[in-house]
Design a protein around this nucleic acid. Structure first.
Lengths: 135, 135
DNA sequence: TGATTGACAAGAATTATTCCTGGTTGATAA
DNA sequence: TTATCAACCAGGAATAATTCTTGTCAATCA
């Protein structure tokens, strides 16, 4: 099902704002924050407000079309679905390295409590070469 | 190296407050927030302030003795190192299920950019049985 | 003893996010 | 076509978590 059909089916409008955010995220590997998205989409829609960005991201996330990433403990970051988002973060300086590798695990259904799994995210942590020196 | 020796070696004081937080987290599987830790440790140290909790957690984290967890996008949560913290979260209602399974894998050193790895965290996401009904 | 430094408490300031309100739009049905 | 209704959105206020700042204290060391 195409996404526009899906939204029509759900009785939800795929408004220009929503499309703009979706297309900004499509293929985007930079894990932007809401603020980043706001700044970019605002060029096209100067009247758009931050709350609309948050609202929209929530809607798209609920529909499974956008991923909320939890790499950065300070703020939420977002990305398209269907791209692996695995990261390695330094405990000290928060430097983040992308791990371009996909991990496929399955969980025994006894553990999933009826969830429909849509993806996973593996976060490695440790100390980067700079911070290793004095720990 | 014992932790007290390590801290002496680093020229850092393992103060009563720091010890209290360390021991509160030791073996703790409830992924408490800074607030939770504050409320608990305050019983023993009534004068302790929230900023001390945050400072202390930062120090302990930098030293690799405490893990900052990113399960909950609303606030930071903390846990002892060396315990697996894997989760399954609903994209819609944010319901979180603990996955009591340990995933052990390594990364090829070509990907780690000189990091010293100390752990990992696997987060599964999807839709819980309630939210599956209307997506 | 005096100076230096790390640690701490308290509260102010900041920042990301959510909430609220009122107006607008677009689809639907009379 | 027009009325109705719900979804949508902008703007800004409110909230909650976290960080920053400042003054004080205690331990360490010259």
């Amino acid at each position: 099902m195409r996404i526009s059909d899906k939204y029509r089916y759900l009785g939800i409008k795929l408004t220009p704002q929503r499309l703009a955010i979706l297309s900004y995220l499509d293929g985007n590997r930079s894990h932007p924050s809401a603020e980043d998205i706001y700044r970019s989409v605002r060029k096209e829609f100067p009247t758009m407000s931050v709350s609309t960005v948050y609202n929209t991201l929530d809607v798209l996330k609920e529909k499974g079309d956008v991923q909320e990433l939890t790499i950065d403990p300070r703020k939420k970051r977002y990305g398209p679905v269907n791209t692996p988002h695995n990261h390695l973060m330094c405990n000290k300086c928060r430097h983040i390295v992308d791990i371009n590798k996909e991990f496929k695990f399955t969980l025994p259904s006894s553990m999933t409590e009826g969830f429909e799994l849509t993806g996973n995210h593996v976060e490695f942590f440790g100390f980067c070469s700079n911070c290793r020196k004095k720990q």
